[in-house]
Design a protein around this nucleic acid. Structure first.
Lengths: 240, 240
DNA sequence: GGACATTTGTCCGTATGTATC
DNA sequence: GGATACATACGGACAAATGTC
């Protein structure tokens, strides 16, 4: 009979309203929103209902809450990250007018597991260097990474990484002058607690995970790397 | 004094426990989980607390709830989707041993907006065909798409799409024998309500959005396309 | 088709914990 | 320490969709 109105959930409408406010520029990036309690009053809903709306905007990367401090408007410039044969992190970031830094959080040498061994074309258990860390543009984490290298080929790599702070330079010091990316596989994930903390993201925020093998001039694998990009800060570009 | 344990949230631990159960195969794909009420009893928590745990597993694509029916274990094979110069949807799907179909939900002709005009190298307001739909592997939606074509160059395109059901064939019928992808830009997003419905995903599930321009042999743009891939069903691959 | 129990989704209220200022 | 603000957890109630009898 009457209108077949697909009534939207209250929290969903509130989320849309707030999203429109943000798009309109009602709150500037970095600015603090009114407290949850006040927003709830303003919309005439329970605080939980409002929190559900905020949760969605947080997952979309538009807001980030800080316990005890307030809810803030996110401010993230999108960095283009070209996925070519030669991918160099610092080039991509400095092209965007920012300062690229890399922070290593773990460097260890151990036996390769099945997956690592397969991708590096090594027998399982062969010693490999595992390097973990995050890549920053200025002070914002853009990506978390884990790279695995055959230890036999680059015995001094861990020391070189500490000296140079650069994977490319460390590999050069170990005698590898050039390497190229063989194939990249990209999937979308949501950040769990651990990854969210490393990337300074909200739990549930979208993440681009790439997996790639780099090979030397003869096609021999020299690195098996996984990178998790913050979905709302990085756009991967593929040129033909 | 005692242990400075960074106590995890209850719901988070429950989510981890359930995720481990799923990984262990305690519930088979497609199977129904016990009801929220029963799981809450079993874990000794309030239903809301348990729901929060389920929400996370849902966002990760491991579960999908159906109102009135229950919560089910997701079962999605990952389809590899190569992003090369020539991207043909059906090839990628049939390579995975599945049947590719395309369903068009809207075909209309209107004036190009600013963004469309720029990407197609046309003056704003120039008539364009807009085609929306979803791509399925068997009966599972893999991607939602919107493609924009210059109407002047392909006057009969809407009719051809209805006849052939294929964009490639429709363009051929309009005299375009070959086209290639100029550049692709990939970002990660979370699905909103509308997109979630089209892709049969949970709201908040991760999505890969690609934007690309296809050009003919002379470099003239012939299509501006946006595609939203279900993040947990598709892996984009980039070959050098 | 209709009545009914089941199950998930939404909304409200309250209390307490924890981090920040 | 105290006030503020977000995070977690519990409880209850009803709506909406589903499946069954």
């Amino acid at each position: 009979m009457s209108a077949p109105i697909p009534k939207q959930a209250l929290w969903s409408e509130i989320a849309d309203t707030l999203a429109a406010d943000l798009a309109r520029g009602a709150y500037r990036p970095g600015e603090r929103l009114p407290s949850e309690a006040e927003l709830a009053r303003r919309f005439g809903v329970n605080r939980h209902t409002l929190r559900r709306a905020l949760a969605r905007l947080t997952a979309e990367g538009k807001l980030f809450p800080r316990r005890g401090a307030g809810v803030f408007v996110a401010d993230h410039a999108m960095t283009d990250y070209p996925l070519g044969r030669r991918v160099r992190f610092s080039q991509a970031v400095s092209a965007a007018g920012q300062t690229a830094t890399r922070r290593f959080s773990r460097i260890e040498t151990r036996g390769a597991d099945a997956e690592e061994a397969q991708n590096l074309a090594l027998p399982p258990g062969t010693p490999v260097h595992v390097v973990e860390g995050v890549s920053l543009a200025d002070t914002t984490p853009l990506a978390a990474f884990r790279s695995v290298f055959p230890a036999g080929r680059f015995p001094g790599l861990p020391a070189r990484l500490g000296e140079t702070g650069s994977i490319t330079l460390a590999l050069q010091a170990e005698g590898l002058t050039d390497y190229t990316r063989a194939q990249t596989r990209i999937v979308a994930k949501v950040a769990g607690a651990a990854l969210a903390a490393r990337l300074m993201l909200a739990e549930g925020a979208p993440v681009l995970r790439t997996r790639a093998v780099n090979v030397d001039g003869t096609g021999q694998p020299v690195e098996y790397g996984t990178t998790w990009f913050a979905g709302d800060r990085v756009a991967l570009t593929v040129a033909p």
